[in-house]
Design a protein around this nucleic acid. Structure first.
Lengths: 251, 251
DNA sequence: GCTTGACCCTCACGCGACGTGAGGCGGCAC
DNA sequence: GTGCCGCCTCACGTCGCGTGAGGGTCAAGC
């Protein structure tokens, strides 16, 4: 019996914890063959053999109760259990594969439905969406109620929403440019329609009365950067848009 | 508040159990917005919204604590967590794939190392391994200590072991048949060597003294079925083997 | 008004395989 | 003798509920 090992030695040998050995002892799954005078558990080579079987079956995912059954079962029963276990693990495997897909799905949804980040905006609007402009705009209008309202609303805009906004602005400006080229009167039904569409595109951000819109129109003529933006697309567009907005506001 | 639902209704609606709702309430994960006079939990549409998020995240495999964090996290943090969860699940997936392989491995080992069944024996020895022979053999020798010893030993023989035994028997008989064809003297070193090899092939089953082996040799001549078995392979083999065994026993 | 049955409430233990101390004894080297 | 490591026996914690026990509530039918 001098070959008998204590819990710590067995634990090191087989890669389990001491607590695990205690646990198996409690359950009667692996009761050490002997005890020292002081009550130390003493494991023989046979015990180690049994433990290594237990460890093997545990690694295969069996519960302790099933491990106990496997140890006393004959070959045919063991094979049957192993097959069952394999099938069960395969089933869980399939279900986890589905889980990964579900997570991917949620991830994609989150990516598109989450409020847009600064990077998203740069990706959509290009690098022209620079910090300098942002800073200046904040200084100019940061104290207005419209700015505050816009800030609150856009905080929840998704990348998809921003893309829609860009598309609508683009379409609007193209329609206005076409009207200028075709010599459409700003104070015609079509001219006023475009002015109204412009107001709606602004109302996405904040409540925009006709009066406020007229103020914007005046700025488009007063601030050369706005004027340039419109006239680059179509010479005379800034003036035409201003006139249409004024005409629409006067009804 | 007339739109408020009780636990049972909510449970049906979202496919969870009443106990689960109690649990979430205890944890503070989903505290119903109201209680009836009698203390019934009352869930509003908002509560349902929150619950459906909880159910979603739970289905994605998050723990309840993480679900709580996800509910208050912003988009970026949620995405980060989803990614982490996906990676973790993928890792577990890989490890389960390994598990399946390990089980297959154990299964194969068990298949080949398990004691052979009657079907295994038929597969190895052919259908000549019939019940009639078995029954007669048991009647003839079932009471002998050799039979008992053989029974005990063969009970643990694997299919592989049986195959080895068959191969060795085959090789032995071929060697003996060749010796007969070549006119080898049974009482020569080579003849006695074959006799000794025969004895060893018997000792696989039970302890076989030279005297006992001589008894076997006599039976090979006395029982026409044994004689036929050997002489079919090589005329004169039964007699030759008998003589070699007798010579070897006499040293 | 009374019963019935379905629903709700609050405890509180159970599961599975150990982890993680707490409190105390044994063994061995200095 | 003393310090440290290893061993012992309780015994509670983990995680997400399941499953009663014991008892109120509510709407409907008699």
């Amino acid at each position: 019996m001098d070959g008998a090992l204590t819990v710590g030695q067995v634990a090191d040998e087989l890669g389990v914890t001491v607590r695990t050995l205690h646990h198996y002892d409690e359950l009667g799954l692996l009761v050490p063959s002997g005890r020292s005078a002081a009550g130390y558990r003493l494991y023989t080579a046979e015990d180690l053999q049994r433990l290594s079987s237990i460890v093997l079956y545990r690694r295969l995912g069996f519960g302790l109760e099933q491990v106990g059954e496997l140890l006393v079962a004959d070959g045919a029963a063991r094979i049957e259990q192993l097959r069952r276990q394999r099938d069960e693990v395969r089933a869980r495997l399939a279900q986890m594969t589905g889980l990964v897909d579900a997570i991917e799905h949620a991830l994609e949804a989150e990516m598109t439905q989450r409020p847009a980040t600064t990077e998203d905006l740069r990706a959509i609007f290009g690098d022209g969406f620079g910090e300098e402009y942002q800073t200046e705009a904040q200084e100019r209008w940061g104290h207005t109620p419209q700015w505050e309202q816009s800030r609150q609303r856009t905080a929840h805009f998704t990348p998809g929403r921003w893309q829609e906004i860009k598309d609508e602005t683009e379409a609007l400006e193209q329609a206005a440019a076409a009207a200028v080229r075709e010599g459409v009167d700003p104070d015609s039904p079509h001219g006023r329609e475009i002015a109204e569409r412009h107001r709606e595109s602004i109302e996405v951000f904040y409540d925009c009365s006709h009066e406020f819109q007229v103020g914007l129109a005046q700025m488009y003529l007063a601030d050369p950067r706005f004027t340039a933006h419109y006239d680059e697309r179509q010479p005379g567009l800034a003036q035409w848009l201003h006139d249409a907005i004024v005409a629409n506001a006067a009804r």
